[in-house]
Design a protein around this nucleic acid. Sequence first.
DNA 1: AATTCGGTCAACCGCTAGTTT
DNA 2: AAAACTAGCGGTTGACCGAAT
Length: 285
Amino acid sequence: MGMGCNGCEKPKASYRKGLWSPEEDERLREYIIRHGHGCWSAVPIKAGLQRNGKSCRLRWINYLRPGLKHGMFTQEEEEKILSLHSMLGNKWSQIARHLPGRTDNEVKNHWNSYLKKRVQKSEGSNSSNSSVKSTISNNATSPNSVDFGDEANCNQTAKIEYAEPESASPTSSLTIAQTTNNVQVQMQMPKIMFADWLQLDYINGKEIRSQFDTCGSDEVFSNISAQPDESCTGDFVPGFCDPGIYGDFELQLENASENQGGGLYDIFSPMGEFFSGLGASTDQI
DNA sequence: AATTCGGTCAACCGCTAGTTT
DNA sequence: AAAACTAGCGGTTGACCGAAT
């Protein structure tokens, strides 16, 4: 686009706005997968984009970040939104945290264009908006002190399944070797999809440190941005989190040290699921 | 066939809180 | 102490598209 007045030395770069082109998307994705995002305001410069950092951040978080679900909300998701909204109000980011693969923006949009009307209608026509509230009312305390521990623990949307011994074991022999410690665990513990596990805030009442967006943190985060390969089992949703022990589970990252600043990671979920992909850890950038 | 209407959703804007200089 | 900067949040906008007229 044009460049405003040339004479005045306003360093005001004219940023592109509006919808992202596929080329821009590719540049941004490529850059972040290789280098992590670091400081967002530097991203467009380093990635060669005529956008501001804020726009890049938004595009990554809401669209490009691996692991996002797109498309129709399931009934369970909708019910969850309704429940959470009745407790939290318009705290979209908090609500979205309990919907794996969904962004706050998406949840907000869905509420505004579908769910709000539905609630209003049922409120108008009725006495007590029964089913929605009843699912959560038992522990609906003040909005500030909502504790999801129990909910996360027993809820259905966490996709907790019981692993069959071999269905959980990937084809890769590497994996088998690496997960010997987990074999026993695999037999008796619930199998949790990596994706869901990462995004849950609590498991068995214990807080899990997982997040999808860390920047400039001094803590030793390993930000994993990976893509599924053939040996993936189940839904793979990569994310950013600390390796370590969380409650009854352990998350391992393999080969990370040999691939500092981007490279191939082997990632083991707590239940021994194996994933491999590109990654970059921000603490090395 | 052309125009208007209405809904959706990606993206922007302004603000706040936290951190760094 | 304060100014500058950053990430993140939620409200809002407007481009786009299908349906209705």
